[in-house]
Design a protein around this nucleic acid. Structure first.
Lengths: 334, 334
DNA sequence: ATGAAAGCGCTAACAT
DNA sequence: ATGTTAGCGCTTTCAT
């Protein structure tokens, strides 16, 4: 069998096969203008389409329509954990019901404007983006390219965009406040070294610093790569450090470090109290069970409905739409 | 400030602003035909584009070009775990260097053909898909729609597609063989209840069954949802079951169940030996450290180069491209 | 009830 | 060195 480039089937082919015009094909397949085409023709068109294996061309459609049905998110969101991926799943289902297709854009880029440009080229109906990647110039670019809905997931209102507030600084604040109330005085804050996490980490650290100032405790940022060896290195340095607690950035890093500290002979929480964030299920599997920061966000389905509403009503003023609540879940590691 | 629909800037606008034709704009911005346009005009065009905030329209380009620069993967791949998401990151970087954009398609669909259609509508340069979602009809549809490269990640060669072999059955076989050699005789196999995992789970179970037949041990599939309560329920039923080992589907489920078994007073590996799969870092954080099945796949960068080669050489015969090796990593849980 | 035709934004072959 | 133009596949207004 030789591989031959398949002949592209277009709506014109379907029209020819069914003995009708392209207009009729479009009406039938999209079910617009109901009752305009007789049932017999409809059937003939559908048969022809099925027989020829016709698949509509999204690019042509959105070129004509002036907008696509794509909703774009950066894929880094998906990497955060199982919690987020369940939520994403929910979001995708909701969007699908409203006729949109959710795609996660794989691109990373150091420059927010370059990144925004590569999103804008796809002319999505909406983008939902961590606000830290949305500089004013990036927002301008997206709006200027005709992206109707720019939704920021951000610690603070992003000018020109709809914002769902995620106070990552609040996570750091809650963690440090809790540790301070437990009598801890010298608190390390994990700064993950993996790409894409530095922005969240910076926010969380800022909140930690703020709480530290209020409660008179000391904060030290400590870099940690998500590898056993690096955790072991950090744990070895613990003995001379005087740190009696650590905010682990999130549950994954917190658990990695917990294990390394234990292997180094330190007791958790006796010698070192540990707090994570994201409240993943693994936090409850560890020994000791990990204290964590949970965030109660709106469901994916709710967000999908919201996005649809914003797309339908282009006049809506930018502003804050919702604030995700942060909450400390106290367990045995602190 | 009122929200007004931004005036869409097209290449014609740029041409007008720069006082040149649309063709010249295209040549300059895409850097095709070097030396055709004088340096002064180039600069004028670039200035005008920047000043107007011009962003090219991917749909129009791919309509004209007959193909897009999108490479599509189902987002379910990304949800598998940190291992996979690092690999995806690597893949995306590689594809980006070759001029492609990786997007993860959020859609789920029970019908492989419907799913394939929604991919095909985007006319991607390539799709990379778990082979279990690629029925012959789905492959036909994709090829027929002009998708040049259909890459299956599958336990066996997929007719009409390029295949990278992932022997999920091999994971089950290795796990059960190992447990049998350790003297275990009644082995439970976790069947995760979360959507999208059943296909992998079925493959892993099939391999487990095969090894069980060879080694004369008994296999029992046990459903498990990724929740504490469900793991506790399963652990409670253990006492009367007679199972002396479990293959936990993957590391996440294995660790969830391990904790529940321990809470139920069972010793791992004394009473129950546990084997996971995927060899995530968390396997090494647990107590006891979890025995797991690692798969050594080609790097994301290598796969990106391969995809690029296949796109460039449309004549290449479909067939098996590579086989990911499966390997048991023995630790303390078995 | 159906068809003809314009045009979305872009690129490349063909003029000049 | 630059411009003109056809046409990618689709939808939709307007005409029949």
């Amino acid at each position: 069998m030789t591989t031959m480039s398949a002949p592209r089937v277009t709506s014109a082919d379907v029209a020819r096969a069914a003995g009708v015009s392209r207009a009729t094909v479009s009406f039938v397949l999209n079910d617009t203008e109901p009752g305009r085409v007789s049932e017999t023709t409809r059937q003939r068109v559908r048969d022809a389409a099925a027989r020829l294996g016709y698949v509509s061309h999204a690019a042509a459609r959105s070129l004509r329509a002036g907008r696509s049905n794509l909703v774009l998110m950066p894929a880094t969101q998906a990497a955060i954990g199982r919690l987020v991926s369940d939520w994403l799943d929910d979001l995708q289902q909701g969007l699908h019901r409203h006729g949109y297709t959710l795609v996660l854009h794989g691109g990373h880029d150091s420059d927010p404007v370059d990144l925004a440009r590569s999103w804008a080229e796809l002319r999505p109906a909406a983008v939902a983006v961590p606000g830290m990647q949305l500089t004013p110039a990036a927002v301008d670019l997206l709006r200027n390219a005709g992206v109707g809905v720019v939704l920021a997931l951000s610690p603070e209102a992003v000018p020109g965009a709809y914002t769902v507030i995620f106070r990552h600084d609040e996570a750091g604040r809650l963690a440090v406040e809790h540790l301070a109330q437990r009598g801890r005085r010298r608190i390390a804050v994990v700064m993950p070294q993996e790409r894409g996490l530095d922005l969240y980490a910076g926010q969380r650290l800022a909140g930690a610093r703020q709480a530290a100032a209020t409660h008179g405790v000391q904060i030290t940022p400590v870099p940690l790569a998500y590898r056993l060896a690096d955790a072991a290195r950090l744990a070895r340095s613990w003995h001379d450090s005087g740190w009696d607690a650590v905010f682990g950035y999130n549950d994954d890093y917190a658990l990695l470090l917990t294990r390394a500290l234990q292997d180094e002979g330190l007791d958790v929480p006796g010698d070192v109290a540990v707090v994570g964030a994201d409240d993943l299920l693994v936090a409850q599997l560890a020994r000791p069970r990990l204290t964590s920061i949970a965030f109660d966000t709106s469901s994916g389905a709710e967000l999908a409905a919201l996005i649809d509403r914003l797309i339908q009503q282009p006049g809506t003023e930018p502003g804050v739409l919702h604030t995700a609540a942060m909450r400390l879940v106290e367990r045995d590691s602190s």
